[in-house]
Amino acid sequence: MKIDLSGKTALVTASTGGIGFAIVQGLAECGADIVLNGRSEATISRAQQKLNAAVPGVKIHSAIADLGSAQGVDAVLKGLPHIDILVNNAGIYGQKDFYSADDDTWEQYWQTNVMSGVRLSRALLPKMVEKEWGRVVFISSESARNIPADMVHYGVTKTAQLALARGLAKVAAGSGVTVNSILPGPTLSDGFASMMAEEIARTGKSLESLAKAFVMSQRPSSVIQRAATVEEVANMVVYICSPLSSATSGAALRVDGGVVDDIV
């Protein structure tokens, strides 16, 4: 199986690190041109250097903006080349007691996790439909189906992404454009590493061993009984962005290690 994305341009939001960077590297290795998105020139510059080293000759555009507002999305859209592949990866998460999560917290999560994808899809999907080829992907979470009691605000936004992707797949029906969601489970991302930094320093344990302990205590239904790597998540995304996935649209595809305990 060979994935060839030559001549395609991919915008991956929040792509300077973690899952987002693994996705752009995977897409670039298959020949795609890349639009990197981050919130600062410094993070974009570091990501460009890293991507150039990993995939020499890759064509890179940059889009510096925080996508938590309409103004940020507008800033990304200015000067973009035609986008064939949109991966809505931008998102925030964090534990918070439901009773102390105020309206501002809910609004912040909604704007970043949901409305950024709404705004970008609204702007970019029509041209994909016109060209009769395109891929739109939402990076959701197993928390969309397994709402955490300590992150209800986050889980609700991730469920909303599934509904949005399914609806957009119907909007683009028959056009050659597909819209899908990817649901990672616990993943060895930069965010998880930051969350575990104090514990690593205190115990001297590796990130992988702490992640495994987290999975077994907090997600005991996991079948693989460990956290996934960012590359494992990216592999699924690269496939669903490729011409090989043309019969898959409106789907919610899990890379959760079997955390969600069902067979569908």
Score class of each variant (00 low, 15 high):
Gly7Ile: 01
Lys127Pro: 05
Ala193His: 15
Asn89His: 09
Ala211Phe: 06
Ile147His: 04
Asn52Asp: 13
Pro148Trp: 02
Ala65His: 04
Ala70Ile: 07
Pro184Glu: 08
Val114Leu: 02
Ser45Val: 10
Val76Ala: 11
Leu27Gln: 14
Arg202Ile: 08
Pro81Gln: 12
Ala234Leu: 06
Arg39Ile: 11
Val114Phe: 03
Lys59Glu: 08
Ala28Asn: 14
Ser222Leu: 03
Val215Ala: 06
Ser209His: 06
Val171His: 14
Ser62Phe: 00
Gly258Arg: 06
Leu120Gln: 03
Asn235Ala: 15
Val171Arg: 13
Val237Trp: 08
Asn88Ile: 00
Ala22Met: 05
Ala28Pro: 15
Asp4Arg: 13
Gly17Tyr: 10
Asn180Val: 01
Val118Ala: 01
Gly185Pro: 12
Asn235Trp: 04
Gly185Gln: 10
Leu125Glu: 09
Asp256Leu: 00
Asp104Val: 08
Ser15Lys: 08
Ile85Asp: 05
Val73Cys: 12
Glu142Ala: 00
Lys2Leu: 12
Gly79Ala: 03
Ser40Glu: 07
Ser62His: 05
Val230Trp: 05
Pro186Trp: 06
Ile23Thr: 14
Thr105Trp: 02
Ile23Ser: 09
Val179Thr: 15
Asp104Thr: 12
Asn37Met: 04
Val260Glu: 01
Asn113Leu: 00
Gly134Asn: 11
Val156Ser: 10
Arg39Thr: 15
Gln95Pro: 08
Gln161His: 03
Arg226Phe: 09
Ala70Leu: 03
Ser45Tyr: 06
Gln48Ala: 01
Phe214Pro: 11
Ile83Met: 01
Val129Ile: 15
Val152Lys: 03
Arg135Cys: 01
Gly167Phe: 00
Leu164Met: 14
Ser222Ala: 10
Arg226Trp: 09
Ala14Asn: 10
Val118Gln: 03
Met195His: 07
Ala90Gly: 15
Ala70Gln: 14
Ser116Phe: 02
Ala213Arg: 01
Tyr154Thr: 06
Glu107Tyr: 09
Ile139Glu: 01
Lys78Gln: 14
Gly18His: 11
Ala54Ile: 05
Asn180Phe: 00
Lys205Leu: 05
Ser116Arg: 01
Asp4Met: 03
Ser217Val: 09
Leu77Pro: 07
Thr203Asn: 10
Tyr109Cys: 01
Asp150Gln: 15
Tyr99His: 13
Pro220Ile: 09
Leu5Ala: 11
Val255Met: 04
Cys30Leu: 03
Ala165Arg: 07
Val152Met: 10
Met115Ser: 02
Asn52Ala: 14
Ile147Asp: 06
Ile3Val: 15
Gly117Val: 00
Val87Trp: 00
Arg226Ile: 09
Ser221Phe: 02
Ser116Asp: 06
Ala149Trp: 03
Arg219Thr: 12
Pro243His: 12
